[in-house]
Write a protein that binds this DNA or RNA. Structure first.
Lengths: 246, 246
DNA sequence: CGTCCCGTTGATCCCTATCAAATGTAGTGG
DNA sequence: CCACTACATTTGATAGGGATCAACGGGACG
């Protein structure tokens, strides 16, 4: 049975906020603790969706494999996030794999418990709807970016988002809180590790970032934000060359 | 107040299936009929999300505009689909515009009614979760396609999906049921109208499709499906040339 | 019958994937 | 402590898929 520690963590999650204390305790009675080593999967794409999870500690990535064997990163799971809720959307199998990128700890419930949570508290499904709605919006943002933006903007945006979610202050700047490779970023942005490497090298040259093996630090957020917003706009009557002159 | 006709239509929608008859009638009491001319919007991106809708007749497209003014098509709304449910996901404003591509009729409810539907029947939110979950999956499929596939595959897939949802048998083949331009398809697949036009021309040459102004007919589904699945795979020990020989 | 949209087609260019190879870095076992 | 291995990263060279620029053709509708 999960420790008392879990209780205070869970209690503050959006999804569980609606549950009264006794219902919460009852819920925790049925939870299993799930420890994952780096590289280990909580579940695999295509498996029957027997459980759903809350991440307590660590970081996971959600990946889909295409029929051709290429991989894409759907999203990163941060502590406090719910994942594996396929069954709640009436999908019998997980649509993606979820893999620990570092040592992680999660709580797991049998999917069958979901309905009890819902019937126990009417706000529960509604909270889940909000969570999924947010993910849908994020997905649409990504579609928009993939459709209309260039690689440099997309990579800049991806890194900014990771920093927002999991940034950690360091003397050098703000660092992404978990190990992440060029390949990972490529799989998030629809490009190749080569292109990502070239971009990071160029940015390092200009002092925007600092990076090494599985590690990225952003030194100049503002500059990176400018990159993410795209090539300098040329409003009516101005050309890039004449802007700011006069 | 909506006609008796609406009732039998609504009754069979996934979202409303859970409502008992009397609740359904009560719901219909509060519904407004919303008629849209071609090109007219049910609502615009950024507006406050005051209503949600069910499409009874016609076709709508959901579009997002980027800060740079480029447009993308998020999805098409078919008769029976729910749309404009931003508020149910606790978003106060619509994240996209929804525009009739032909004369259409919808039912509309004030967003405030949503909570009553939910409290009136616990399955309601759960049904909505399923709907949104399906959309999330679709969005992830699109992300995967934009990330890993070539333009020809993506366009083929987009057309096949439209045909699946709104195909109509004709002597020539299966026709997409509503007016759609090269530009629209470009905005669905992250390419340009020029490239779409070239592809359709090439396919017409090969007898796969037939198309004209705002009109696309698929003559050879199987061939198009093959295109959508990508360039011929060459599994270990086989070349495309030798496959199937022997 | 003219005008507006939509579609077609050519020519050109450039971003970025791909191919190829070297370098660097953490971890492991002797 | 060092050699060895596995994996991450960097960097160069090249090619090609599509975007972009430009112009024309054609059907619908007032």
């Amino acid at each position: 049975m999960p420790s008392q520690l879990s209780r205070s963590l869970i209690k503050n999650l959006d999804l569980f906020r609606a549950l009264p204390d006794d219902a919460l305790d009852a819920a925790l009675q049925h939870a299993q603790v799930c420890r994952l080593a780096e590289g280990e999967a909580a579940f695999h794409q295509g498996e029957e969706a027997t459980r759903f999870f809350v991440l307590l500690h660590g970081h996971l990535k959600v990946v889909q494999i295409t029929p051709e064997g290429e991989q894409i990163v759907v999203r990163y799971v941060n502590p406090g996030d719910v994942f594996g809720i396929a069954r709640a959307m009436r999908r019998s199998h997980y649509p993606a794999s979820t893999i620990a990128v570092q040592e992680s700890i999660a709580l797991a419930w049998p999917s069958s418990e979901w309905d009890q949570f819902v019937s126990g508290n009417p706000h529960f499904a509604s909270n889940a709807l909000q969570t999924v709605g947010q993910r849908l919006q994020d997905a649409h943002s990504r579609i928009r970016e993939l459709s209309t933006e260039e690689v440099e903007q997309r990579v800049a945006r991806a890194i900014l988002r990771l920093v927002d979610q999991s940034g950690e202050e360091t003397p050098e700047g703000i660092q992404i809180n978990f190990p992440i490779t060029r390949q990972d970023i490529a799989e998030m942005t629809g490009t190749t590790l080569h292109t990502v490497s070239r971009l990071l090298s160029a940015w390092k040259e200009r002092g925007l970032v600092n990076s090494g093996r599985k590690r990225i630090v952003v030194c100049a957020m503002d500059e990176l934000i400018r990159l993410a917003e795209g090539p300098a706009q040329t409003p009516a009557g101005q050309s890039a060359a004449t802007r700011g002159v006069g």
